[in-house]
Design a protein around this nucleic acid. Sequence first.
DNA 1: CGCTCTCTTGAGTTTACTCAACGTTCGTGG
DNA 2: CCACGAACGTTGAGTAAACTCAAGAGAGCG
Lengths: 248, 248
Amino acid sequence: MAEVTGTETITGRFLMGRRRSQLTADDIAALEGSVQTVRSLPARTLMITAGERVTVSTMLLEGFICRYMDDREGLRQLVAIHVPGDFVDLHGFPMEMLDHDIATLGPVKVASWPHAALAKVMEGRPNLTRMLWFSTLLDAAMHREWIFRLGRLGAEGRVAHLMCELNVRLEMVGLASDGRFPLPLKQADLAEACGLTGVHVNRVLRSLRERGMLVFRNGIVEILDRRALATLGEFDPAYLFPDDLRKD
Amino acid sequence: MAEVTGTETITGRFLMGRRRSQLTADDIAALEGSVQTVRSLPARTLMITAGERVTVSTMLLEGFICRYMDDREGLRQLVAIHVPGDFVDLHGFPMEMLDHDIATLGPVKVASWPHAALAKVMEGRPNLTRMLWFSTLLDAAMHREWIFRLGRLGAEGRVAHLMCELNVRLEMVGLASDGRFPLPLKQADLAEACGLTGVHVNRVLRSLRERGMLVFRNGIVEILDRRALATLGEFDPAYLFPDDLRKD
DNA sequence: CGCTCTCTTGAGTTTACTCAACGTTCGTGG
DNA sequence: CCACGAACGTTGAGTAAACTCAAGAGAGCG
């Protein structure tokens, strides 16, 4: 069970469960002190468009955000799903522009830092700099796992793997327990994350439900057989760099 | 045509074609000055295993290197292919361990930096730090494009897209011209990069050849119809952050 | 020369897709 | 309050894409 410590502060969930303890009190204070804005956004809101020049970076405090790319026919491929505590576009700081769109899934609360403020905060703080860098590399590690998921798993494995990932990530920030967590996705969204069609995701979910592994209904995921789901999805959480490295 | 400037030095191809000009002479000198070793390795050599603690980072100077993950049956999924000028495991600096294996494809020449030396070089050099960070985020951008490739494209599109990417990346470092470049992959390796079987890659290559788009034989790629290949693979090089942003 | 590795091709199967229809839920306006 | 429409989920039937299995061809090497 994740501790509740710090969730009252803005950055309380940042790197929670993954080396957060390596952030010093000064590092955290410096980050907290340079927040520009905290605001709420409704569901299904486009936040950033590919190619746009970005000058602020945003951390997700509550809710879910996705990143995606469009194909020629306008079909989307999700490339990331963010949970509270994630910086959703810190990579925009070194990159200056993004190669993908960012949008909210459900309603969210987010905090933003101007890049200039981030640069100032990092100056003379090599440890904080490295932790921020690390957090962007966690995204890259998840990207790699998604490549694996799409390249090597069948439809059921893909859905299973994604659900295992989200479960672990939400557990780390204290937002899932007993394999139960909210997930404001339609079946069509899940399809866009898994490289499948909506119709096929529907069949996969039915199969997982009938096999007693997972129920996903009304935006709530309930993992009934965590071990079976992990086996089906060939899931090993090591790529998430959890402090607590269990194999389940 | 890419310029040849700097290819005599160790880091001459680093970020070539993508913001290399933002590196100062001091940045480059500092990097060059802290190289620990330069060595050659034979083809098909395992360099780093997933989970291993890493204390040095390596830049590829000549040849090709891949990163991959294994599934339950030992089948590989490539998650990256590196060309000269790429740091292959700079992400190991903030991450301290890797979530995937790294191996050479053909024979290579590589240079290595101890992480301690990198930390010292970055101290007081925020610009260099940001450029190194940027280079790891280019990998992440390529990962995202690979997710798109696997999630949204059919077999022919996947192969076409990968070939377009390698062509552009090799052009940027002066190692491809007129759509012709060496690529020390077997058809089975290409399959592992595209989430396909070797047999099917064979059929795809035949189709691309018969359609006059691309020939891949004896480790040499020849792109015959760059535009058609880009269309088929829905390829837009923007995600590679080239200085020269052409749309082809 | 014979072995191994890679590439190639054919035939049949499996997986996921497309198209189409129907069900369910929920919000809105008559 | 009910009727209607819109959005989402569900199911069936047929199709297309990629897979598996198997066999043979070509190249390179000891």
